[in-house]
């Protein structure tokens, strides 16, 4: 079953690659990259079982975190043409814990 699941995940990665290459909008590509990342995370988890190396799950965790950062960076860059400005205001009750 793990085998079938990994094949299915690879198939969906390929489908996502097609959407990534076809576009047409930039947003379609961002969506496809993000979704591709999710599928890679799942694939790494499944693959860790397939080859019997639990270490791969650590890589999956790392991807789940990093994928988010790059998606945000791409969007912010596209939207504001810069990386340096703030996307969000600080919360009003800042520094409450100290």
């Amino acid at each position: 079953m793990i085998f079938f699941a990994s094949i299915m995940l690879m198939a969906s990665m390929t489908l996502m690659l097609i959407r990534l290459l076809r576009g047409p909008e930039l947003y379609d590509r961002v969506l496809a990259v993000n979704s591709f990342g999710t599928k890679t995370v799942l694939f790494l988890c499944v693959f860790a079982f397939l080859i019997g190396r639990p270490d791969a799950v650590d890589i999956a965790i790392l991807y789940a975190l990093m994928n988010f950062i790059s998606t945000i960076a791409i969007l912010k860059f596209f939207r504001y043409r810069a990386l340096d400005i703030a996307l969000s205001r600080m919360n009003r009750n800042r520094g409450a814990g100290s």
Binding site: M90, N91, N93, R94, G95, A96, G97, S98
Partner: peptide, 12 residues
């Protein structure tokens, strides 16, 4: 988190 001023109920 304290240094970055994000230590509040949203972070925690």
């Amino acid at each position: 988190a304290w240094r970055l001023h994000i230590l509040d109920e949203e972070t925690s």
